[in-house]
Design a protein around this nucleic acid. Structure first.
Ligand SMILES: [Zn+2]
Ligand SMILES: [Zn+2]
Lengths: 367, 367
DNA sequence: GCTGTCGGATACCAC
DNA sequence: GTGGTATGCGACAGC
């Protein structure tokens, strides 16, 4: 099953790129890259190069080459995905390099592209190859990723009885599945004599889903649960807060919104997951927000304010950097930079690199 | 001067209504009514009638009559003004009654109208008359209004030397003038021998404005100050925070944004006004927000979030009320209500009134 | 008009 | 994925 999910991410033609760009359906590899970037950012180990007055593409075109030479796997990501999920920048094109925890050498490069950059067939192929290499590296190197990987395996084990239920027409079933968490426990409750069993609320089956019956006192069979999967999904507390805009306070009233717990898949010693039933949550959210449309409107509103905040913050930072950098790079030097070449940087000060050929100065900032 | 301002508010034909409806240029009377409503709201003394399932206009048509009979002055206000300034409701039509502090009898009624309600000539005349009565009552009755009125007089006194400078083509000069506060002190600094005086930064005059020279070390003559009045306006701290979105922290750095103080015009014992120079503020705001356009965009954004919040809050409240009221008014009774008549309410419970003829129930809520 | 306080929402970090 | 804390902002009441 897990191999299913990963195979899908390898197709990376223009069509797939458009699909992957949807914020709500990032592929597994994308999500891993984002997590990786985010984690590296937290560790203050992520380096982000911000060029001064030259067009960003001028600086970036050589990165793939450098990566190739240094045998560093890299990958292109549509920028939209990054913006939403990893909370990165609004720059149309930029590059992040993720160093090894110990040695400081770079292990993975990620190039964030604007959506409207045209790719040649050759580039596409290169991308595909490197995506694969990056994927392999990621799944084998990073402790965080290892944990998640491990968790996925554990889930698969506990759900062995339904391991093969994934439908081929669901390209992002991996993601969906994790969020639904229906595979966590699929035991069936049947007692003897059979006549004493309650029947499914939708049909006459007595093979009731154990999770729903035990934790939510809902009698529903596996079949009907899947038929009405929108009602019987399990949602984590975080998801509910993010996608239904409920508050901690509201989620604390178990008489209105009961929940079950499961060990935290990231690390079992961390706080348990709190899983709410989608039908409860949705009903509550409709009561709170008026309608699902109104809810969606509020979500959009908050997202746009978030975007605005980010943009403002970034502009401030950029202006600062520009002020710091502009004085150092004279116009005479930058005109020389127009000649096409691969920048070769030397470090001239803490966080400041200069190309030995064109004197382009690039400031590194920790993010 | 103050009589100038008040005369203008008496013209209340359709044209004037459109003019008055502009949020940024409410007439003096409008602003007083709004303050009155707001203050009454704070005192929990404001009663707002919320009809159940009947069309609001059905309930409201008799209010003027009742007011007439009880000799209560009333006035129509375009609803848009209320929504923005007094933070009232989104109802297209509603009515607020403001009781006397002691007796509890009503002294002023304000009817908030939708902008698209058609008025007959007779109605317009009635409105005009009652506007006038309401204005007189307000300026004579309310302690808050008295204070403001008094403050206005004091300002006029301190600015006697330029008392007549108001231009007739400025209908809202009263408001503008207060905000500019240029009349607070218009002494001229000239020392002898005349050769020792600095000259105006814009011309050769040595009759420098004392306020700007003393508090901001800016040499500018009265004439040039008025010519460049956009640069040399004085803005209160509150105005700066509202209209330029600067924070307390930013406004505290006097090396960047110096300010002068003046006694609080509302009550001299309250905190002094802090007056900033418009050119300083604008320059800082442009640096902070990127441009005046970006600032305006942010202001608009915040206003829309505020609107959204209000709307949501109101919807919640309305839903509650509907639930409480609906069960009490049967459909049979409300059909009887369609006959045209003046509702005559009796109190059936705390905050609940019922018309003796049509049984219409109206719930009063404190706001 | 100014100030302090409170509640909501958001961002960040550690587990 | 969750819980805590820190921060910025809007609302409000008192002065
Ligand atoms: Zn069933
Ligand atoms: Zn001059």
């Amino acid at each position: 099953m897990s191999s299913d999910g990963e195979n899908q991410t390898m197709e990376f033609d223009q069509t797939a790129l458009a699909i992957i760009a949807k914020p709500l359906a990032p592929s597994k590899l994308h999500r891993r890259l984002l997590k990786l970037v985010r984690k590296a950012g937290k560790d203050k180990s992520l380096k982000r190069g911000v060029p001064g007055d030259v067009s960003p593409i001028d600086v970036l075109t050589h990165i793939p080459v450098l990566c190739e030479e240094a045998n560093i796997p890299y990958a292109y990501l549509p920028s939209k995905v990054e913006l939403g999920a990893a909370g990165s920048t609004r720059r149309p094109t930029c590059c992040v390099m993720i160093p090894e925890p110990k040695s400081g050498t770079f292990s993975v490069g990620v190039i964030l592209m604007s959506d409207n950059i045209e790719l040649s067939e050759e580039q596409k192929l290169l991308i595909q190859t490197n995506m694969e290499r990056a994927r392999r590296l990621i799944s084998s190197k990073r402790p965080l990723e290892d944990t998640v990987q491990q968790a996925a395996v554990n889930e698969t084990i506990t759900t062995s009885r339904r391991g093969g239920f994934l439908h081929p027409s669901q390209p992002d079933s991996t993601l969906k599945d994790t969020r639904e968490a229906r595979r966590l426990n699929d035991d069936i409750i049947v007692t003897y004599p059979l006549e004493g069993n309650a029947t499914c609320r939708h049909c006459t089956s007595i093979e009731l889903d154990a999770v729903l019956k035990t934790h939510f006192s809902i009698n529903v069979c596996h079949n009907c649960r899947e038929i009405h999967s929108n009602n019987y999904r399990l949602l984590t507390k975080t998801t509910v807060k993010d996608e239904y805009l409920l508050t901690d306070e509201e989620l604390a009233d178990t008489s209105v919104l009961p929940f079950m717990t499961k060990p935290n898949p990231y690390k079992s010693t961390w706080s348990d997951m709190q899983l709410y039933l989608s039908m409860h949550v949705e009903k509550f959210a409709v009561k709170k927000w008026g309608s699902l449309e109104a809810l969606q409107q509020e979500i959009t509103r908050r997202e746009s304010t978030k975007e605005a905040r980010k943009e403002k913050k970034f502009k401030e930072k950029l202006k600062e950097l520009r002020l710091k950098t502009r004085s150092k790079s004279s116009s005479a030097l930058s005109s020389r930079a127009s000649r096409r070449h691969v920048h070769c940087f030397e470090i001239v000060a803490a966080g400041l690199k200069r190309c030995t050929e064109c004197q382009l100065e690039v400031e590194e900032e920790d993010i």
